[in-house]
Amino acid sequence: MSGEHPSPVDTTPASPVAAARFDVRDFARTAVGSHRESIDLSVFEEDPLPLTVVQLLAYARELERSTMTYLRNVLVTPTHKDARVTAFLTTWAFEKYWIADSFEVVVRAHGVDPAEAETLSRFRAIALEIAERATPIVESFRANAIGTDVIGLHMASVAVDEWITEAAYTRLLADCPHAVLTPLLEHVLEVKARHRLFVDPDAERRLAESPRARSLARRALPRIDWPIGAASLARTDTALFYEQLIDDELARSIDAKAAELPGLEKLHLVQNARRAALENPGHPAARLGRSLGAAAATLAHTLRSTTKGGTNG
């Protein structure tokens, strides 16, 4: 999945005017629910998706489904006090639930159980368990000491996350034209575009207004495993996500967009996340496999070089 692509990152600068105009109540009223009726599963019998695409959709399903874990860490902070933000997040979680559901339906139609995307090594599962238990407690103490500036960080994290997934889906849309997948992804992108209408200007305004929010975001954003939700998913799947959908150029363009948010210059969030995911795709067994593969390749190369006279090494 490579080739020439128009940049899927919308580079229109977020406008503070739009923040004032975004009607949270109207957004809630017109929330988009189940996509099931528009998905004709019988098409997949004739024209199934490639296995890699199915795997990517299973991964995307987990990302979209991780809202409750995200809200868990967000709501213990003063962010939960802002009724406008929570009204938005309520509908946002609802729409993302149904996006996840639509991916799940497609994945299942290919005989794959999406729950299998979560295959963590035992060591990582335990580490994650400890981290998950501690996070809301730590977050609660930390963020309550910081106060409402933390809302700026939370909105910025949703913004960057939306840019990543949106770019990924746009790339998938371009790379894998399909009678059912194409309209589904187009629809999903429309739903997500509306999230950005709230999130982008809100993040920008909150960061612009407060130096503390900016410094908090600068420190905290690089610590997130992008995309949000990746922390509890198999590293091999995250590696596949970056390998197939976010190339270096795309990562760079998302980072450039993040750099336009006040105080977030030169962070390289997505480029770093991409590099980390591709350099360390998985548990020790996978790494061992790769080193063995590399060793075998070197050996083969040496053998070839020897037989050819060894000049082209």
Partner: peptide
């Protein structure tokens, strides 16, 4: 949403 928050901090948040 405040109650949701109180409930999510328990292990319930992982049950699909």
């Amino acid at each position: 949403v405040c109650y949701l928050r109180d409930m999510l901090v328990t292990p319930s948040h992982k049950d699909e």
